[in-house]
């Protein structure tokens, strides 16, 4: 009954300076599931994601990825099978580019160095814009987008990567209801197609409604598993109300 895992995090410890931000984290993200990563501010959610994508060098521990034909690989070996959606506040939206330009960037990984996107890539980009509900936005300037539209453009860019695993950092932060509905429908659709989706999420109210699996972290893993089993009052309480004093302060997540 248990599905195979897409990502395995094994005894991961990460620290900025001397303070541990993540302590002995072991998680199995299951294949073909929609998983939420939940925890309070400063719990290390973003740090976990950044470690998984090799932006941060952990002190100890390992992370391995499995896609259909390749098992237990390092991130580097399967980069093009993993799509990452950063928080949309991390870029300058006044950059001179159109929506099409940004979505096409999702194709760059498949193209490799120097080669330019062609007709097929533009076709894929257009399809993805249709999927996120922005079919008429291709030539729109990105500075003219609302917060929800920005998030959908980022999602379209990730979809254009045609990956097997999608890792998203707070895709529902600060978006309108309409966008939230569109994004969740899309993510559920991805899972139905056999993809694996991991989402850093902040809204406890919607966890039961939206997700299959959940990981509760606050520097350590408090609980993981199916929403039914792991998302209990007790676990939530432990995640949010207990001061887990592994060195104070630390960096924000």
């Amino acid at each position: 009954m248990d599905k195979a895992e897409a990502i395995r995090v094994d005894h991961l410890t990460v620290a900025y300076d001397a303070k541990p931000v993540l302590w002995d984290i072991s998680i199995q993200f299951k294949k073909e599931r929609l998983t939420a990563v939940i925890g309070p501010n400063g719990a290390g959610k973003s740090t976990l994601i950044k470690s998984m994508l090799s932006f941060i060098q952990p002190i100890t521990g390992s992370i391995s990825f499995s896609v259909d034909d390749q098992q237990d690989r390092a991130y580097k070996a399967v980069k093009n099978r993993v799509a990452y959606v950063p928080q949309n506040t991390t870029v300058d939206w006044d950059f001179p580019a159109t929506v099409m330009d940004v979505v096409l960037m999702g194709r760059y990984g498949h193209l490799g160095w120097i080669r330019r996107p062609g007709k097929k890539d533009k076709e894929i980009a257009k399809q993805m814009l249709l999927k996120v509900g922005l079919p008429t936005f291709a030539s729109r300037q990105i500075s003219q987008l609302s917060g929800g539209q920005r998030q959908r453009v980022f999602l379209a860019r990730a979809l254009a990567q045609e990956a097997d695993i999608y890792i998203m950092d707070e895709p529902l932060a600060g978006v309108d209801m309409k966008t939230e509905r569109i994004i969740m429908q899309l993510l559920k659709g991805l899972v139905r197609q056999g993809k694996t989706v991991i989402v850093v999420h902040h809204d406890l109210q919607t966890v039961k409604q939206y997700f299959d699996d959940v990981v509760l972290i606050n520097r350590e893993v408090i609980a993981e598993g199916s929403v039914k089993e792991a998302f209990t009052e007790e676990a939530i309480d432990q995640t949010y109300h207990q001061d887990r004093n592994l060195g104070e302060g630390g960096h924000p997540s």
Partner: peptide
């Protein structure tokens, strides 16, 4: 293409394998 994506979104560009 590489300079463009790196200037716009360096984090994302790294995940593309450049």
């Amino acid at each position: 293409k590489e300079f463009k994506v790196f200037t716009f979104d360096p984090m994302f560009a790294r995940t593309l394998g450049f």
